[in-house]
Nucleic acid binder design. Sequence first.
DNA 1: AAGACGAAAGTGGTTGA
DNA 2: TCAACAACTTTCGTCTT
Length: 308
Amino acid sequence: MYVKKCPECGGINLFMNREKGEIICKDCGLVVEDKMVEFGQEWREFDSDGGDEGSRRRTGAPMTYTQFDQGLGTEVGQKADLLSLGAKDRNKFFRLRKWQYRISTAIERNLKLALAELKRVSSYLKLPKSVEEEAAMIYTQAVQRGLVRGRSMESVVSGALYAACRRHEVPRTLDELSEASGIEKKEIGRTYRFVTRELGITILPSNPADYIARFASSLKLSPETQSKAVDILESAQHEELTSGRGPTGIAAAALYVSALIHGEKRTQREVADVAGVTEVTIRNRYKELLEKLKLEREIKKTKKKGKK
DNA sequence: AAGACGAAAGTGGTTGA
DNA sequence: TCAACAACTTTCGTCTT
């Protein structure tokens, strides 16, 4: 669905600026920005995703019809203001209101849907309000910059949420986001990278320690074990064991080790499951931790203690 | 029998020519 | 754009408890 006529003057001299993602009416200068955020699949600029045949399709889950039906736009326009305007200004007012109506409803409608989705995912993941707001802000910016085009709304929402989580140091894994939103993991990752890059959001590399608390509570580990795991993590970072590795794997391994030390043994399988990695990854990290941090003694100590 | 361990082959993503 | 590469996964066999 393209805008074929200018909503302002009805003119057909629409000029499309693909770079900026704008449509401009040459007759009246109206900028029809973000004309169809939610219908953007015909457009394929920013074709960063490989562009193999067939991938012109929009990625991600298709929007449902129910979503389309929801949230029909808000009325814009303040009648009270009319009283104070002269005839000339009044014309201008109508003009402005008309296009404002068209444009803002497009954005607003999209935002409304998106925020509903965002809220749903956010509450599913039990994210704090602050993260939700940050994500909403990111998403709004993304819409304003036209970054949604070519992507599904849901994936951008997920990307924004993921970014917000990272910034607030309450990281969720891509898997969790993926499960909550129904968007593929790699798609979320892609949009996440794209959006943060385009908006110039600084991404602090996620800290494994941020995962500890959550994993530990899923495993019902004691607070002592948990804080020991954080200690281990810190020294591991000192030894540069953490760069380039998946943070969840490291967090999981640290937890596993500290559980051993405190005699609260969990199987590798259990830890691996809550951390969303495999046993093998835990083993590898675990091995590295033992080598570099000389933790064997501590483990052996507690083993003997436990048996006595 | 279950868990821990390790080897080998495969996957998806990043990087550098 | 492609090939090399690192991290991680999957699978499977062996050892330990």
